[in-house]
Design a protein around this nucleic acid. Sequence first.
DNA 1: TCTGGGGTCCTAGGACCC
DNA 2: TCTGGGGTCCTAGGACCC
Length: 395
Amino acid sequence: VFETDLSDGHPEKLEPPRHTRPQLAGGAVCMSYIVYVDMDAYYVSCEVRDRPELEGQPVIVGRRPTGPDSRGVVLSASYEARRFGVRSALPVVLADRRCPQAIWVAPDFEKYGRVAEMIRTLLKRWSERVVPMSIDEAALQVNLSDRAAVGARAREIQSALRTELRLPSSIGGSPFVAVAKIASDAAKPGGIRVVTPEETESFLEPLPVRALPGIGPKTAERLERAGVTTVGGLARASSETLRRLLGRYGEALAELARGRPGPSLADLPTDRGPRQRSLDRTFEHDAARWEELRGDLEEMAQELSGILSQEGLRYQQVVVRMRWADFTQLQRGQLLPAATEGADPMVAAGLHLARELWEREQAGRRRPVRRLSLAAGRLLPRRGRQERLDAFAAA
DNA sequence: TCTGGGGTCCTAGGACCC
DNA sequence: TCTGGGGTCCTAGGACCC
């Protein structure tokens, strides 16, 4: 999450922000801290919570492979399992090979969502501003400006999570959201790391560029080819180099590397509704016939529209994605004339789009399909008023 | 080593509008 | 008949995150 493009057509954004933004240069005024809470081995911890006998065991959340060509990856691994080289995103086949004695637990996402709500409720005890950053991470504005006080607060929070919810966590502290997150990573597992403004540069300097949120494998590789491997190196890179390598985004990353703030917590949206809902299905064996795709797509549209209506959401866009064995993928989307609900328009649009992608592939390389995805976008909350001229008929 | 399922944001090009 | 400068929206693809 970085600010970019401040000047393009948004003159109001050039004005100083309403709130006090922490500053590094020019004197430390009101360096109010952010405490960043990141749960350890979250899915596994949720399971251990319900089954204490799993404590201290090598536990893997994921679907245990049934054969050598089982598809799937590990969702979460306990630290005991990690000792065998098992980690999230590792193919389940390899995980089973590396740690045959592991205890496998099938994922229960509803549970993880419920527990996440409990965590957020607990965190609100220490701050009115709790911003969920993902299912297992949250940032809190704590209105403290002294490292000892922040450390003490972090210990209180960590101990409440452990005793009241029986969940382990790692906590980072910094006036800057991104630095607080990086500090929580550095504190894993089970630790607390507070980085003062004065320490920020020396804390970041030696880290690999990959430690910065927003730098993934591709960007790291591009940087490495230019001789930039550490955050310190990134901070020292010239503007031209960054622009050439990473475009406009590069400047924002370098600012972060130099220890300057990204957006403040007050700028991060807390409870914006979802942008998209989607379902993905990876075939056990790549699909080579249209009938297989069609059947699955209809099922997925039924399920997805059901989820949306449960959430009270209408959709105005339908997107279909296909991935082939070589992992390349293609997508086609369609904007509907109006926000709508129910399965029928989704089935119709989905089939049309999938057919288009399918025909295109049949005209060319005719690869079988590995994964099929269906997404609904442009989501709007359902309201009780008429949205379409022809809605009278339905009413 | 062989890669799931769910999301987010950014960018570039084209169509279109005034 | 050929044309500027500004903007928005849409689509597709890419990178990243947990």
